[in-house]
């Protein structure tokens, strides 16, 4: 299928982007990598009147080390981040998760911020951003705001972004001294996960654990390593588990129960300092 008609604009500055967003609001869609947007346009699921192409904006194509966090601009592709030299050392969990994001070919174009903004409930990057307590940087003519990831991602494909705002960047807190682990189960290699589990060690045998695919957005919890199986079991039983063609809620709960404990164990034994 072919997209419905729309106007296309490729602004030269971020200011122009914000002007357009202010003018068009919900009628506009920001086009960065297009790996989620274009399929929806091709399927005629959307009818934006304007596409704002930010993929060539150098100002947004930056990876910025802020010391305590790494800020990734809206035009940075997933593969660009993957080949960013300090990634392994500064964001080992992101490095692990990126291996599971789509395919080489889609990561070449798909952006980190685009994945966060799309807010698929089983996508890897929103899970990791939420788990690490990261932030989303929203820009509009009204100013720049940051929002905690957990507040940004509200539900399935739903975020707190206002119509005039651009997801200008996301910030992943640097986690290099704690063990991390990530694993997922998908039907096919590269598909969205049925269940994705990520863990990052806290102090005193505690792990912070996130799960994607169980609800409309990533869920987080602190869990004691030695009681991981029990705690994950109890947690899974509290949840409905999202139901779709590929997995029943019961299957998701079962997978979570089996996937969660080894991920926690892996995080607790991971070598720290970037070689997780």
């Amino acid at each position: 299928m072919k997209p419905r008609p729309f106007d296309y604009v490729r602004p030269d500055t971020v200011e122009e982007v914000l002007e357009l967003l202010a003018e068009y609001g919900d009628d506009a869609r920001v086009l960065a990598g297009g790996q989620s947007l274009l399929p929806m346009l091709n399927l005629r699921l959307l009818e934006p009147s304007l596409l704002i192409d930010i993929s060539r904006l150098a100002a947004l194509d930056t990876i910025h080390d802020r010391g305590d966090a790494i800020e990734i601009g809206a035009a940075v592709t997933q593969n660009k981040l993957m080949s960013w030299a300090p990634l392994q050392q500064k964001l080992p969990l992101v490095a692990l998760a990126l291996n599971h994001v789509g395919h080489f070919q889609t990561r070449n174009k798909g952006t980190v911020c685009g994945s966060i903004a799309h807010a698929d409930p089983s996508a890897e990057l929103p899970l990791v951003l939420a788990l690490l307590g990261g932030e989303v940087v929203l820009q509009s003519r009204r100013g720049t705001f940051t929002l905690a990831a957990a507040d940004f991602h509200q539900d399935m494909l739903t975020t707190a972004r206002k119509a005039d705002e651009l997801v200008a960047a996301v910030r992943f807190p640097v986690v290099s001294r704690q063990g991390v682990a990530f694993q997922e189960v998908a039907r096919r290699h590269g598909d969205f996960a049925i269940i994705a589990v990520a863990a990052v060690m806290q102090d005193a045998g505690q792990a912070r654990v996130g799960v994607g695919g169980m609800a409309g957005r990533p869920l987080l919890r602190e869990i004691k390593v030695e009681r991981a199986a029990e705690a994950i079991g109890a947690w899974a039983d509290e949840l409905e588990g999202h139901e779709d063609l590929h997995a029943s809620g019961a299957l998701r709960r079962a997978i979570f129960k089996r996937l969660g404990p080894p991920v926690i164990a892996a995080a607790s034994t991971a070598k720290v300092g970037g070689t997780a």
């Binding site: 590929h246 997995a247 029943s248 019961a250 299957l251 079962a254």
Partner: peptide
């Protein structure tokens, strides 16, 4: 024999 069906069978 999808995971969904295998899981149901095992249950």
């Amino acid at each position: 024999a999808t995971p969904r069906r295998i899981h149901a069978l095992m249950e």
